[in-house]
């Protein structure tokens, strides 16, 4: 199990990776969403604000009404944010659950796809 601080550390790195990737910023320039991440084994929740493709904030706790909710094991969340895990494979096996529109699911996966294409 990954602790809340481990996931926050991973999220902080994820934020830097995303915001520094110009290709991703261009692709996501119209994408402004509020995302919730829920660790199903620990019950920890995290909120991420994306404004025009830029991650403007990540914090502990579930704040606001989200556009996207991602539920996964804490270890998977942590590995996903570090880019060590291909989220599509977990998603296709039902181990990562997403509540969102088809387009938002695609956009979310696109982030990993662009930053870590070999993941």
């Amino acid at each position: 199990m990954a602790t809340s601080s481990e996931i926050l550390e991973a999220l902080a790195d994820y934020q830097v990776q995303c915001n520094n990737n110009q290709r991703l910023r261009k692709m996501q320039r119209d994408w402004s969403k509020l995302l919730h991440f829920v660790a199903k084994d620990t019950g920890d929740g995290f909120t991420m604000d994306v404004v025009r493709g830029e991650i403007t904030g990540v914090r502990s706790g579930l704040v606001g009404t989200p556009d996207v909710v991602v539920t996964a094991a804490s270890e998977d969340l942590c590995d996903m944010f570090w880019g060590d895990l291909n989220p599509s494979q977990k998603y296709l096996r039902g181990e990562i659950q997403v509540k969102a529109s088809t387009e938002d699911v695609m956009r979310l996966d696109a982030i990993t796809m662009i930053i870590w294409p070999e993941a």
Partner: peptide
């Protein structure tokens, strides 16, 4: 590929025992 997560080896995309 070098794993990025510090501290411990990363899980992979495959389900444990699955795939």
């Amino acid at each position: 590929r070098q794993k990025r997560r510090p501290g411990r080896p990363a899980a992979t995309g495959a389900a444990p025992g699955g795939g």
